[in-house]
C-alpha cells in the first residue's frame, strides 16, 4: 500500500505545517518518544485520527457517565423510539437505549481487537524469530504461513469458527491465528536483515549466546515493524469480528458487539434505520482512525517499510 510521500510532498499540500525544511539534526534534549510523536503528528490527519481514537477509547471507558441507561435493560413501552432528547441514539426493538449499547459495543470491539493483536503479535513474533534464526524451522514455518495466507481472511475465520463454535474467546483465538502470518512474515523479513548487521556480529564476537542476541539485540529492533502491523491488525480484527458476528458465527447474538447490533437491526430496516446507522458509524470511525494512525506510524517509524502489508 502506498501513502503520501513524506519527503517529496509539495508544501502547498501540507497546509499550515511548516515548510519541509531539510530535516534538522535531532534536537537536543528530546526523548525518542517525543521525536516520534513530532514526526507522527506532522501530518494533521494523523493527529485528528489519534485524537478521535483516544476519544473513542475514552467514551468506551466512561460509558456509565455518558448515559444513565443500562444497555441490557428492556423497556418494551419505549421500543423503537427515534433519536431524541431522552434517547440520543433512539431505542431498539426491546426499548433498550442504543447509545448505551453502542458504548458497550465499543468496549467489546476494542477488547476483541486488542486481544487479537496480543495473540497475533506474540505468536507471529515467536514464529518469525525462530524462522529467521533457525534454518531448519524456516522452511516449515514459511510453508505453514503460506498455507494460512492461501485462505482469504474471512473464509479462514469462518472455518475456524465452524470448528470451534461461537464465543468471544473463540473469535479472539480464530482471528489471532488468521492474522499471525502477517506478523510472522514481517518479523522474519526484518530478522533476516538484522542478523547480518555488524552489531549482531559484534555481539557474537563478544561471546553472547544466540538466545541473548535474539532477545536483547534483535527483538528491540523489531519493535517498529511490529507496532505498525499491530495497528493494522487491530483495524482488520474489528472489521472481521463485525462480519463474523453479522453472519451469526462470531460472538453469540446476545452480546451486543457492533456486528451483532447491525445483524439485529436488519429486520427493522424499514421502520428504524438508526438501529443500523449508529453501530455502523462507530465501526467506520474506529477502523478509519486506526488505519490513518497506522499509516502515519509506518511513515514516522521507518520510511523503508512502506511496501510492507
Amino acid at each position: 500500500m502506498a501513502s503520501l510521500p513524506a519527503a517529496g510532498a509539495p508544501p502547498a499540500a501540507t497546509g499550515s505545517a511548516p515548510g519541509p525544511a531539510p530535516r534538522p539534526a535531532a534536537p537536543r534534549g528530546r526523548s525518542p518518544l517525543a521525536l516520534l510523536l513530532r514526526r507522527l503528528f506532522r501530518r494533521r490527519m494523523v493527529l485528528v485520527a489519534a485524537v478521535l481514537l483516544a476519544a473513542i477509547v475514552a467514551c468506551a471507558v466512561a460509558a456509565p457517565w455518558i448515559t444513565p441507561y443500562d444497555p441490557m435493560k428492556m423497556a418494551i413501552l419505549n421500543r423503537l423510539q427515534a433519536p431524541g432528547a431522552a434517547h440520543w441514539f433512539g431505542t431498539d426493538e426491546f426499548g433498550r437505549d442504543v447509545l448505551a449499547r453502542v458504548l458497550l459495543g465499543a468496549q467489546l470491539s476494542l477488547l476483541v481487537g486488542a486481544l487479537v493483536v496480543v495473540v497475533a503479535t506474540v505468536l507471529g513474533t515467536a514464529i518469525g524469530l525462530l524462522g529467521g534464526y533457525v534454518r531448519r524451522l524456516d522452511g516449515l514455518f514459511m510453508r505453514f504461513t503460506d498455507a494460512l495466507m492461501a485462505f482469504p481472511d474471512i473464509l479462514l475465520a469462518i472455518a475456524f469458527m465452524a470448528a470451534l463454535g461461537p464465543s468471544l474467546f473463540n473469535v479472539v483465538l480464530a482471528l489471532g491465528i488468521v492474522y499471525t502470518p502477517r506478523v510472522a512474515r514481517v518479523v522474519r523479513a526484518a530478522v533476516l536483515v538484522l542478523r547480518e548487521l555488524p552489531f549482531v556480529e559484534a555481539a557474537t564476537a563478544l561471546g553472547a549466546s544466540t538466545p541473548r542476541i535474539v532477545l536483547v539485540h534483535v527483538l528491540p529492533n523489531l519493535l517498529s515493524p511490529i507496532i505498525v502491523q499491530a495497528t493494522f491488525i487491530f483495524a482488520y480484527a474489528i472489521l472481521t469480528e463485525a462480519a463474523l458476528s453479522f453472519l451469526g458465527v462470531g460472538v453469540p447474538p446476545t452480546t451486543p458487539t457492533w456486528g451483532n447490533m447491525i445483524a439485529g437491526a436488519q429486520q427493522y430496516v424499514r421502520q428504524a434505520d438508526w438501529l443500523m446507522l449508529f453501530p455502523g458509524i462507530a465501526i467506520v470511525l474506529t477502523v478509519l482512525s486506526l488505519q490513518v494512525v497506522g499509516d502515519g506510524l509506518r511513515d514516522a517509524l521507518d520510511p523503508r517499510l512502506q511496501k510492507v502489508t
Binding site: 472489521l239 430496516v269 467506520v284
Partner: peptide, 18 residues
C-alpha cells in the same frame, strides 16, 4: 480510499438496501 477501506461491506449493503 482510506474511508472506503474502513466500511464493512455488509453495512454498505444494508444502507443501500434501505
Amino acid at each position: 480510499a482510506m474511508l472506503a477501506a474502513s466500511i464493512p461491506s455488509f453495512w454498505i449493503g444494508l444502507t443501500l438496501m434501505k
